[in-house]
C-alpha cells in the first residue's frame, strides 16, 4: 500500500515535469525562431507586420512597474495591519477585523478587476487625467489584492514569536511600539519577508484583474498614468486569436512567467531555510 501512496506523491513531480515539458516544448522553438535576446529585450511587439516583430520587453517592464507599485501600496499597509492584528487589536474588535480580511482574501480576482474598472479607474481618470486604465490603477487594485496575504502570513509570523522578546524589550524601557517594531519585526523577519515575496508572486501571476484595468498599451509608459501590458494580460488578450509563431511567442511569454515564479519560489525556500537555520 505504501507504494500506492508514494505513487500519488509522485504525481506531483509528474505534474511539474509535464507542465514544464509542454510549455517549454512549445516555447523553445518559438524563441529559437525569434531569438532569445530579441524576444526578451525588444520593445517591438508587432505580430501583424511583415516582417513581424515579437519582443516582450515592454510587457516585462509593465509587469515590473505594476508589481513594484502594488508592493509599495500593499506592503506597508499590510505590515502595519499585521502588527495591528497581532499586537494591538482587542479581542472583540479582532472578531470583526479577521473576517474582514478574510473577505478581502475571498473576493475573486474577476470581481477585483471589475471593481477596478468601474470604480477605481474613473476616480483616477477624474482626478489625475489620462484614461484611468493605468499603472497607478493596477497598482492600487493589486496592492489591495495582496493585503490579505501579507497580513495573514506576517500576523502568524508575529504570533509565532515567543513572548520573551517582547518582555525583554519592555523590561529595558522600550515602549510597546518600539518592542513590536524594533524587536519583534526583526525577530520575525523571515516570516515577514516570506509574506512580501508571496504577495510579489501573486501580483506577478495575477491575470484577470490586471487585464481589465492596466490599459494594455504595447508602448513603454512615460508616467504612472500610462497604460502598460503585463505578461499575463498580454497572454490573455491575444491567445484567443493567435496562430503559429504568434501563438508560440505567447506560450513563450508564459514560460518566462513560469521562470519568474520558479525564481520567486526559490527565494521563498531560501528565506525559509535561513529562518530555520537561526
Amino acid at each position: 500500500m505504501k507504494i500506492v501512496f508514494a505513487a500519488m506523491a509522485a504525481v506531483f513531480i509528474l505534474c511539474i515535469v509535464v507542465i514544464c515539458a509542454f510549455i517549454f516544448a512549445r516555447s523553445v522553438p518559438a524563441i529559437g525562431e525569434i531569438g532569445l535576446f530579441e524576444f526578451l529585450f525588444s520593445t517591438e511587439w508587432t505580430p501583424n507586420n511583415t516582417p513581424a516583430s515579437y519582443g516582450i520587453g515592454t510587457m516585462i517592464v509593465g509587469t515590473c512597474f505594476v508589481t513594484a507599485g502594488a508592493l509599495v501600496i500593499g506592503v506597508p499597509i499590510g505590515l502595519l495591519m499585521a502588527a495591528f492584528m497581532a499586537r494591538y487589536c482587542p479581542a472583540p474588535l479582532y472578531k470583526v477585523m479577521k473576517p474582514m480580511t478574510n473577505i478581502l482574501a475571498g473576493i475573486p480576482s474577476i470581481v477585483y478587476g471589475y471593481f477596478g474598472m468601474m470604480v477605481v479607474a474613473p476616480i483616477i481618470r477624474d482626478n489625475f487625467g489620462g484614461t484611468g486604465y493605468s499603472i497607478l490603477t493596477a497598482s492600487i487594485v493589486l496592492g489591495i489584492m495582496i493585503l490579505p496575504t501579507v497580513i495573514s502570513v506576517s500576523e502568524s509570523a508575529l504570533r509565532a514569536l515567543p513572548g520573551t522578546y517582547y518582555e525583554g524589550a519592555l523590561a529595558l524601557g522600550a515602549t510597546h511600539e518600539r518592542a513590536v517594531f524594533m524587536t519583534e519585526f526583526p525577530a520575525a523577519r523571515s516570516g515577514i519577508l516570506t509574506s512580501v515575496v508571496l504577495g510579489l508572486g501573486r501580483v506577478v501571476g495575477e491575470t484577470m484583474a490586471v487585464v481589465m484595468i492596466v490599459g494594455n498599451s504595447t508602448a513603454l509608459p512615460d508616467s504612472l498614468l500610462d497604460g502598460v501590458r503585463t505578461m499575463t494580460s498580454h497572454i490573455v488578450l491575444e491567445l484567443g486569436y493567435a496562430t503559429d509563431l504568434h501563438r508560440g511567442a505567447l506560450i513563450a511569454t508564459a514560460a518566462v512567467l513560469f521562470v519568474f515564479i520558479l525564481f520567486i519560489n526559490l527565494l521563498i525556500a531560501a528565506i525559509r531555510g535561513k529562518g530555520r537555520a537561526k
Binding site: P162, T164, Y165, E167, G168, A169, L170, A171, L172, G173, A174, T175, T183, P186, A187, K278
Partner: peptide
C-alpha cells in the same frame, strides 16, 4: 518606560534577541 530603565530585569529563561 523610564521606570523600567531605572529598574532592569533578568528573566528566568535567558531571552536574548535573535540578533
Amino acid at each position: 518606560n523610564l521606570l523600567r530603565k531605572r529598574v532592569g530585569m533578568v528573566f528566568q529563561k535567558p531571552n536574548p534577541f535573535p540578533s
